[in-house]
Design a protein around this nucleic acid. Structure first.
Length: 420
RNA sequence: GGAGGCUUCGCCUAGUCUGGUCUAUGGCGCCGCACUGCUAAUGCGGUUUGGGGUUACCCCCCAUCCCGGGUUCAAAUCCCGGAGCCUCCGCCA
C-alpha cells in the first residue's frame, strides 16, 4: 500500500505514476475521498466516545436517583456511539479497499508503457556461432537422460516434469552454487515454507492482478507460494527490525508453484514455463533511503551468478506497465536462448520500496528512535529455468554439454555432460 | 482426530475468580538529569504502538492487555468464535 501522507500532499505525483503504468487514474481520487470520509467518521466516533466515557465514569460514582438519571443519558449515548462506530467500520473498510487497488508509486526514470516498452541497459557477452544444427534444451535434456516431460505429464499433468539423473544433479549444483555465493556475500541461508497464510500472501501484493496465478488450498485457507519472496517478506511481519548495521539479507531456497493461467500455448515445450520449479531468491530489508543502492547491489549479485554460468545476456529496465503491483522498479536479466534466437528472463529484481512492508507491518527505528516502515527488495540467484540457458549455450555437436568452470566443483569436477 | 493449559506496553511480571480513578503494577534493559575529583554506586524523571485534531513546538482526544464478535452505562476482567505456543492421548509417515 502506498503512503497516504504522500497521497494527500502530492496527489498529482500519484496520478502521474498511474498514468505511467497505464493504470486507472480515477482510483487516486477514489482513494482521496475515501481517506477524507474515513477521517470524518473517525473524528465523530472519537468525540462521541469521549463524551460517553465521562458519563460512564459518573455512573460508577453516583448512586440512587442521580445514578438512574445518568443511566438514561448514558444509554442514549451508547446507542449513538454504536452507530458512529458502525459508520467508522464501514469507512475503514472502504478506505482499505480503495487503498489496496492503488499499486506502488513508480520510481523516477522507469520507462513508460507496457510489456514491450522495456529499455535495454546493457548486453553482456555475445551469442555463440554454431557450426552444427542447434538442439533445444529438451532435446539435449532427453539425450543426457536429464529431463522427463512425458512422465511428468503422466504423473502430474501438463507443465510438470521430472529432473532425472544428471538433470537433477545439474539443478542441485546450480542452486548450491547460488546459495554458496549468497552465503559468502553475507546473506543468511533460509529454507522456507511453501504454504502461507492469506494475510501473508495478501501482504506481498500477489493477490491483486496476479491472483489467478496463485494456487490456493481452500480446505486449509492457505496459499502455495510462487516464490520464497512471499515467506521471506512475511518472516519479519509485525516486527521492528534493527537496521543500524545495514540491510538484513536472506537467501531463500524453495520450490515455487504457479498456475500459469492465461499462458495456454506459450512455451509448451520443455521446462521454460512450468507449474513447479526451484529457486534461490535474495531478499533484503533496508531503510527506504538505501533502497535504490540496494537494488543495484542485488542486480550486481545476479550478474555475478550469470557470469558463473557463462551465458550471454542483457539487462532490461522493465516498463511501468509491466511492473507488479508492489514494485517501484524492476530489472530483469535475460539470457540468450539459441534455439529460440531470443533473450529469456532468468532473473528479476524488484524494489518494492515501503509498499509490501506497509501492509506486512515491517518497521525499523530511525535515528530518533521512531518506528518507520522499512523497504523490501528481492532478486533471483538461480532457478530451474537456468538449466535451459546452460544446456543450450554450452551444447556440443554430439549433444554433449560443456560444464561452465564455476559449476564444476558442484558436479564433482565434471567438465562435460555426455549423452547416455 | 481428542483433551487440557497458556498469550498483558522491548524482555519478565502483577492484575482476570468478585466488571468501574487500570490514565495497567513491579523488576530488568534503555534514555536523560543530579551527585560523586575517572565508564561504578545511588537518587530523580522518562520509556507500547497506531489513528485523529493541531501543526514550529507543546498539547488534547480516541483506540490498543493475541485477533474478531457479544453482554453492559462501563470489559485486561464476563460470554461466544478464531489464531498461535506448550503438554498429554490416539493415529501415521
Amino acid at each position: 500500500m502506498i503512503e497516504l501522507k504522500t497521497l494527500r500532499e502530492q496527489p498529482d505525483a500519484v496520478r502521474a505514476s498511474q498514468r505511467l503504468r497505464g493504470a486507472d487514474e480515477t482510483l487516486v481520487d477514489a482513494l482521496l475521498s475515501a481517506d477524507e470520509r474515513r477521517r470524518g467518521a473517525v473524528s465523530r466516533a472519537d468525540e462521541l466516545r469521549a463524551e460517553q466515557k465521562t458519563f460512564s465514569k459518573q455512573v460508577g460514582r453516583a448512586a440512587g436517583e442521580e445514578r438512574a438519571a445518568l443511566l438514561v443519558k448514558a444509554k442514549e449515548l451508547a446507542a449513538e456511539v454504536k452507530a458512529a462506530e458502525a459508520a467508522q467500520t464501514e469507512a475503514d473498510a472502504e478506505l482499505l479497499a480503495a487503498h489496496k487497488r492503488v499499486p506502488n508509486l513508480v520510481s523516477d526514470g522507469v520507462p513508460p508503457g507496457g510489456e514491450d516498452d522495456y529499455v535495454v541497459l546493457e548486453h553482456v557477452g555475445t551469442p555463440r556461432e554454431f557450426d552444427f544444427p542447434v538442439r533445444d534444451h529438451l532435446d539435449i535434456g532427453e539425450l543426457l537422460g536429464g529431463i522427463d516431460m512425458e512422465r511428468g505429464a503422466k504423473v502430474s499433468g501438463a507443465r510438470f516434469y521430472f529432473l532425472t539423473g544428471i538433470g537433477a544433479q545439474l539443478q542441485l549444483a546450480l542452486l548450491n552454487m547460488g546459495m554458496q555465493q549468497a552465503i559468502e556475500t553475507g546473506f543468511t541461508a533460509m529454507i522456507t515454507p511453501s504454504l502461507v497464510r492469506p494475510e501473508i500472501m495478501e501482504g506481498t501484493g500477489f493477490l491483486g492482478a496476479h491472483a489467478p496465478e496463485v494456487y490456493r488450498l481452500r480446505e486449509d485457507d492457505q496459499y502455495l507460494v510462487g516464490t520464497s519472496e512471499v515467506a521471506l517478506a512475511g518472516y519479519h511481519s509485525d516486527e521492528i527490525l534493527d537496521l543500524q548495521e545495514g540491510p538484513r539479507r536472506y537467501a531463500g531456497w524453495s520450490s515455487c508453484y504457479r498456475r500459469e493461467a492465461g499462458s495456454y500455448g506459450k512455451d509448451t515445450r520443455g521446462i521454460i514455463r512450468v507449474h513447479q520449479f526451484d529457486k534461490i531468491e535474495m531478499f533484503s530489508y533496508c531503510r527506504p533511503e538505501d533502497a535504490d543502492a540496494e537494488h543495484q547491489r542485488l542486480l550486481g549479485w545476479e550478474k555475478e551468478m550469470l557470469a558463473k554460468i557463462e551465458v550471454p545476456y542483457r539487462v532490461i529496465d522493465t516498463a511501468a506497465g509491466d511492473l507488479g503491483a508492489s514494485a517501484a522498479r524492476k530489472f530483469d536479466c535475460e539470457a540468450w536462448v539459441p534455439s529460440q534466437g531470443a533473450y529469456r528472463e532468468l532473473t528479476s529484481t524488484s524494489n518494492c520500496t515501503t509498499f509490501q512492508a506497509r501492509r506486512l507491518n515491517v518497521r525499523y527505528r530511525d535515528e530518533q528512535g521512531k518506528p518507520r516502515i522499512a523497504a523490501t527488495l528481492n532478486g533471483t540467484l538461480a532457478t530451474t529455468r537456468w538449466l535451459v540457458a546452460i544446456m543450450e549455450n554450452h551444447q556440443l555437436a554430439d549433444g554433449s554439454v560443456r560444464v561452465p568452470q564455476a559449476l564444476r566443483p558442484y558436479l564433482g569436477g565434471r567438465e562435460v555432460l555426455e549423452p547416455r
